[in-house]
């Protein structure tokens, strides 16, 4: 490549790189930097080295929030992705009115998280909510719960809006993966007598494992960065029963003005999410091979 061409490429790339560095890399650097300070955003920063991390690793609320985040992640991985794959497969087989259904399934993705959370609040409300009212009407009153507070249901209840809101997106990604499959392979399987279930489990899923891997990475990042649904539905309470890492970081940073500690939580979340995502990607790549 000529020097002149290289210069031209560099010139065109540089603005984007600078913008990326300014808007994406520098905030990450700043968060890492602040995590070494005791700082309330107003007073002068006091350098405390790794004290925020020491405190964090001894903080039972952090571990509770981490467990709750894993609960949320399990919901996304074990419920959302399989359901999204099933819906994508149904659309792929062009069931009746599949174009209409594709739009309907995607609608939750474009609904704002605040609206979604409020809708679920109306569903879960103890006395006037749709869910308990329905249970009472059909004679199952003994199954009514304080869904957002009962230790047995609280975390699952706050996970559902995220599943509902992201299902359509996962479905579209998986559908795109399915549409990239070679029809000849599927036809050959049919000729060999494979039924729909075997086709799905033995041919389709292995062939789109890369796309499933992408969905898993998206699910992991969603689980670790979620805080909006939690904030509106429960604010992490009661007694941190629904606290996730994202809401705990927000609460420490913005409610209690412990920016240093909040930054340490953010750095830890980032580290954990990156490690899990890399492991999942490596596993997915191995499956691909």
């Amino acid at each position: 490549m000529k020097r002149q061409q290289r210069l031209l490429i560099a010139t065109f790339t540089l603005p984007s790189l600078l913008l990326y560095a300014y808007f994406f890399l520098s905030p990450i650097g700043e968060v890492v930097y602040y995590s070494f300070f005791d700082w309330d955003a107003i007073s002068p920063k006091a350098f405390i080295a790794l004290d925020n991390f020491k405190e964090l690793f001894a903080d039972p609320v952090f571990y509770r929030s981490l467990l709750n985040t894993l609960h949320l992640l399990a919901f996304l991985v074990l419920l959302m992705i399989p359901v999204a794959l099933l819906l994508a497969y149904l659309l792929y087989t062009e069931v009746r009115a599949f174009k209409f259904l594709r739009t309907v399934y995607f609608i939750p993705v474009i609904v704002s998280s605040v609206a979604t959370a409020l809708m679920f609040q109306f569903i879960y409300e103890n006395y006037f909510g749709i869910l308990n009212t329905l249970l009472r009407k059909i004679g199952l009153g003994e199954y009514t719960r304080v869904w957002l507070s009962d230790p047995a249901t609280a975390m699952s209840a706050v996970s559902m809006p995220l599943v509902w809101g992201q299902l359509g997106l996962m479905m579209i990604i998986l559908l795109a993966g399915l549409q990239g499959l070679s029809p000849e392979v599927l036809e050959a399987a049919e000729m060999d007598g494979a039924n729909a279930f075997r086709k799905l489990t033995r041919i389709i899923i292995p062939m789109i494992s890369g796309v499933i891997g992408l969905c898993l990475v998206l699910a992991i990042t969603s689980a670790f960065k979620t805080f909006d649904f939690i904030l509106i539905l429960t604010q992490g309470g009661p007694l941190h029963r629904t606290e996730v890492t994202g809401s705990y970081m927000y609460s420490e940073g913005f409610n209690l003005m412990n920016y240093g500690y909040g930054s340490a939580i953010a750095v830890s979340i980032m580290g954990i999410a990156v490690v899990i995502s890399v492991l999942v990607k490596q596993f997915s790549n191995r499956m691909d091979r």
Binding site: Y124, E125, N126, Y127, L148, P238
Partner: peptide, 12 residues
């Protein structure tokens, strides 16, 4: 008190 009062807003 109402069951689950910890989940209720003031106006609820």
């Amino acid at each position: 008190f109402p069951e689950g009062m910890e989940t209720l807003g003031t106006l609820q």
